[in-house]
């Protein structure tokens, strides 16, 4: 999948699922939600991801009050991408889910779980928040950076340690190899560079 995204962003776009044929039902806080509640983003590992980024405050707990999604996971395109034996493992059926801080880039490789089709999976979580003091007590910076994903869609991202490290890695790779890595976000000033 990475190879396709890296060499042929257009092919990756074509293979990416559309909202209508991927998320068949959405409910949030007991009410219906739709396409407009999601942000589409391309990802080097997976062709397309949908982010539910609702900055709502919730006071009720339990499955009825959270986010409830139903996915259609059958393959709708008839292309056999396993042309190189099992080198391209993109024929598994399922979804990968990451629950993360709003407006941050999810780490779909290290901080996400895979959900199998055919099951009703429920996740409950508890959040512990550590707040750090701003200047002059600390050196935390609240600014946002403009980043692009492989579909060249610019998005405003809340900066965090993980994103900082990934941008740093991208700059290092670009400096060493003269091209960009598909798995790392691209800062604005490297927009005109090409993928490796």
């Amino acid at each position: 999948a990475q190879a396709i995204s890296q060499h042929s962003p257009k092919m990756a776009q074509y293979l990416a699922p559309k909202y209508e044929t991927f998320i068949v039902s959405c409910r949030f806080k007991g009410k219906k939600c739709n396409k407009t509640n999601f942000i589409k983003r391309m990802n080097g590992e997976y062709f397309k991801c949908f982010t539910f980024n609702n900055s709502a405050t919730i006071k009720n707990v339990g499955p009825r009050w959270g986010l409830s999604l139903t996915f259609y996971l059958d393959r709708i395109y008839g292309i056999d991408l396993n042309y190189d034996m099992d080198a391209m493992d993109i024929t598994e059926y399922g979804v990968k889910v990451s629950i993360h801080e709003p407006n941050t880039i999810p780490d779909m490789v290290n901080n996400a779980i895979t959900i199998s089709p055919g099951y009703n999976t429920k996740m409950a979580l508890r959040q512990t928040v550590f707040g750090k003091m701003e200047h002059p007590w600390g050196q935390c910076d609240k600014f946002r950076v403009k980043l692009v994903d492989i579909a060249y869609e610019a998005t405003n991202i809340a900066y965090n340690q993980d994103t900082c490290l990934k941008i740093c890695q991208q700059r290092y790779i670009q400096g060493k190899c003269g091209c960009l890595n598909i798995m790392r976000p691209v800062p604005n000033d490297l927009l005109n560079e090409t993928y490796c």
């Binding site: 949908f50 990968k96 801080e101 709003p102 996400a112 895979t114």
Partner: peptide, 12 residues
């Protein structure tokens, strides 16, 4: 009261 997190889903 809690702020609802962002949820990202990707087709595998």
């Amino acid at each position: 009261y809690v702020d609802f997190p962002a949820v990202t889903v990707c087709r595998t």
